[in-house]
Nucleic acid binder design. Structure first.
Lengths: 204, 204, 204, 204
DNA sequence: TATGAATGAGATTTCATTCAT
DNA sequence: TATGAATGAAATCTCATTCAT
């Protein structure tokens, strides 16, 4: 039964949008949002700059949709993990693994997020970035604190510093990660977790 | 390393220049290079946009001077460390500590470097960024490999992954570091090293 | 007078055309011709912008048809009045009454005419607006002059000023007139004529 | 003592602005706001389109400044009249005369106001147009009502209709008025008042 | 040294119009 | 008849840069 492409019954309209957003995300990630002209996006999509405005209100709304779509999916994954009732170490392991999966699925969006979220977050339109940031910190920092209390994590470290360490460590990976590379997201997660949890020094 | 452009105006008091560059760096770091208009810099410096051109050739040359000054100093520090003939673990410790000191001294430049160096490096004018990158990798990766060989570091990790892990982990700190905060650069370095080398998990 | 363009699509049901023109006229009148996008018209008509082009050549041709239809009807009425051989005062009364009837029937067209005719008239396509203007002035000014000569109207006024006064006085009414309001066009005409002819001051 | 141009001591900066606004107003009045491109304004001012943005934020802000400046002056004049404690007929006479003086001084702004104020007034930025409208109606309608009560004006007319009649009759004059023409504003006001108050019909 | 005004190139956006389906 | 997608021209606006004073 050679149905290469199942008919998009009701999911028809967003199809083109999604393609265009993927293209835009690629260019944004590669060149930076501000350095990206809509003409570059249109070129990459094989159309004229003005034509993009049939699909989107503005360059900014493309950025908005890219980021919010990513964050929605990220939180779907995180919320599942957080609701699973795991111990602190297992929660951290699951969050890190989930993060690398998201990087794998949304590499461009993550890269954009890394570079732009800080100065975007002050704009009302992008308030949700700041909100997400807060929720994010609550989840990770809370887990780390629980881990210290339950003697899963070291107590001699500034927990806030630890939080930043783990957070940055994971997410900057998006800047060099290439989907379809040598390592699967799970494999990268495994090695990262090993380093983060046990260190890189050889134990004697 | 960056070859310094000839100073543009003969006897421009270096004092004012430095102030203006610091101002520019602050704005670049906060808003991103492309999103920063010369007007914003001028506003922050209390002058009109056109007046900046008495001091600098162009917006790009400000960026250039900020980044090259930073890299010059960074390499002065690194080269001293690398010439000291320390063991691999001690070398890593010294490099990390030196890195946090540079973040302390050049926070804005580091933040700019993080955000912009990738797409700048392709321009001839900023070739030195790519050169530095190569030299940087040689120093760190080499030290890590030496450490594995000398059984200072674990052999079961992908060393390239380890390199990125350590590199990113240290430098992203510039994105949240505030000079004059709770911890001195040395204290932060100490804790970071402890995490990187020994992990955050409690050993039983 | 406007020479009708050939109907663009052979058997386009004139019914739908008329509806669409009424819709277009409404939007033109409310927002101004230039500020009206074809999308706004299409929205108001419950279709997509491109679909309008099945019915009309262009946005301009809609405007053309609205204005020429209105002027055709206006002149049918005026010509009847002018051919009736009335005295000057009675002619003015009849013209004013007829004008308010036209405002009642073509409110939007009149409003558009008021706002746009001056700058449209220079275009060849809209030459008929200028022609109408000339014919209009001839009819009114002539009647007023005849009235002065026959001692129906005051001789101490600049007749040109009087002409403008009467003309404007009547037609601006389209800007506030709402069909189906308190007063019938005939009643408004009566009161306007009373003011124009006898003034608003109480006679002692 | 040939002082052609007194030195503009403190009023220096707005000089250029005022010139440019006058130019813009001229073009807006002639072609309509929407049909006027900033390029046309710039051409008329002998500069490039982009250069206008050194002086103004946007095309809209030029319009805003033109209209608000006009209304400020108008109300200064009206308020003086209204505060003078005149009888109703004398108040109407003074308001009409003042109106023609404003038309003389701000012909372009008045023409723009006539054409654009209705659809602008719905925008928050131009709320003051609606406010002014209300205040305007209060002043004129109030005076007319007082005049009816004090038997200065006819009681057999719909006063609201009378208000519109007088209001429109005066202000549309801006559409044909040319400063420096045959009649001074005062002379036009005199004849208009004569028509409005006593009618154009010859009394027997 | 700095200002005020402008340039000119290019960016984003708008919109009437077209056209295959 | 209408839709969905696009074109292409032009409009508004931005901004690094220049320059006379």
């Amino acid at each position: 039964m050679p149905t290469k492409k199942q008919k998009q019954v009701s999911a028809a309209p967003p199809e083109r949008r999604r393609e265009l957003l993927a293209t835009a995300a690629e260019v944004f990630a590669a060149q930076g949002y501000n350095a990206t002209t809509v003409r570059k996006i249109a070129d990459a999509a094989g159309m004229l700059a003005g034509s993009l405005y049939y699909h989107f209100d503005s360059k900014e709304s493309m950025l908005d949709e890219i980021l919010s779509t990513f964050l929605d999916e990220l939180w779907a994954g995180y919320d599942t993990v957080l609701a699973a009732g795991l111990g602190p170490r297992e929660t951290i392991e699951a969050l890190v693994t989930e993060s690398f999966r998201e990087i794998d699925r949304h590499r461009d969006a993550v890269a954009i997020y890394q570079k732009e979220s800080r100065h975007l977050a002050v704009q009302p339109r992008f308030r949700y970035l700041a909100d997400s940031q807060v929720k994010f910190e609550k989840a990770w920092l809370g887990t780390l604190e629980r881990g210290v209390a339950e003697q899963a994590f070291r107590a001699d470290l500034d927990v806030r510093l630890t939080y930043r360490f783990v957070r940055d460590t994971v997410w900057v990976a998006a800047s060099w990660y290439r989907p379809g590379g040598l390592h699967s997201p799970e494999e990268i997660a495994r090695q990262y977790l090993s380093m983060v949890l046990d260190g890189i020094a050889l134990r004697r």
